[in-house]
Design a protein around this nucleic acid. Sequence first.
DNA 1: TGACTCATACCGACTAGTTGGTATGTATTT
DNA 2: AAATACATACCAACTAGTCGGTATGAGTCA
Lengths: 217, 217
Amino acid sequence: MKPSRNLSANSPPPKSGARTKLLGAAIKLVRKNGFSATSVDQLCAEAGVSKGAFFHHFTNKDALGAAAADYWTETSSALFMKADYNRHDDPLDRYFGYLDFREEIATGAVEEFTCYAGTSLQECYGSSDAIRGAAYDSIAGHSARLAADLDQAIAKYGAPEGVTGMSLGSYTQAALQGAFILAKGRGNATPVHEAISHLRRYAQMLFTPKFKERSIK
Amino acid sequence: MKPSRNLSANSPPPKSGARTKLLGAAIKLVRKNGFSATSVDQLCAEAGVSKGAFFHHFTNKDALGAAAADYWTETSSALFMKADYNRHDDPLDRYFGYLDFREEIATGAVEEFTCYAGTSLQECYGSSDAIRGAAYDSIAGHSARLAADLDQAIAKYGAPEGVTGMSLGSYTQAALQGAFILAKGRGNATPVHEAISHLRRYAQMLFTPKFKERSIK
DNA sequence: TGACTCATACCGACTAGTTGGTATGTATTT
DNA sequence: AAATACATACCAACTAGTCGGTATGAGTCA
């Protein structure tokens, strides 16, 4: 039995050093150079482990790519869950808090705030089913958590016909993922900030009852 | 002098068969499998030309990737320029026509409606400056043409403070590019249709004077 | 306590095949 | 004749993946 695959709460397992180091290396290198352009040797060097360790923990390179997507899900969802904006009682405040938070963390080098899942899904669609699946699960899961808040907001404040929590959650992700691409082109985070500002304005307009007095930021 | 690099109007050049075939092959294969995962041999096979022809026309694989981005710019801008929606006198009508058109062409297999520039920019950021640059130019140029219409629309109808043609044009691109990523995950175009529907609603809300009577689609 | 077994974690040399790229040739056009 | 547009054969480097081996620690039983 593999020591991996512990998404469930129980069994805190060893978290064997090499495995985690390789996952971290994958996220770092793949975000910057892409999956195919990153060799197993490079990954091992970055992680400071041997090739033997690599293939001890992962059956092949694709398996690492998929496992890294799961790891990305774990680490990033932990980041978002512990963020302050979740404390708001109001679901719409939580959505705006989410946008603010995303804006805050979009700083520094582009390869440090862009999304592993989006990058590898884009690249590996067609060349690796395993990676594509894991990467999409990561993004879809993230959207779903947004959608829950948005559904509550819609129930509370109403929204134009056709606007659902799910569709708005997915759209938010789409706009962010696309902004990451533009950020890679420009070499800085301004497309992300711009996109978030438009998303914020869109939501303010959708949920007007909540913003009778509030001015557009 | 290379027979390539004919973005300027003059000199219709031979358009030597092999070169164009290779560019087409690149767009087809890279959109599906990514740049690094596509080998030179595969590209030659798809194009039906020899490896000698490849390196006769392109100094290396990266150069083909960059040239394919230019080729993508040419072919897709031709597609958009000849589309009917440009005939509208009203700039805002042209923007909505653009959205409708994008929705129309987002059908069939995912790898047939997604964007070569977005895919390769995402993947090659960090591993190839040449490709990154050419791919970004492609997207930025496309945004700029949208921005021109949107600036006219803003001048005509007004818009909330902070909304410029350029920022709205870039945002539109971002939302579409991101929707392409989600489409790759889902395996169909629904994220694209959803994104466009949100973009349409956003624009309708931004330019309310134009929509006193018109209902939200 | 200490010898024995067994599983996990890891190492690094090795290989078979693929990679991007080159060298050299020939047919066609100008 | 000379440049262009290809084709074929080839190569060195790199690739993912293998394989025999070691280190360590936990469980077992005498």
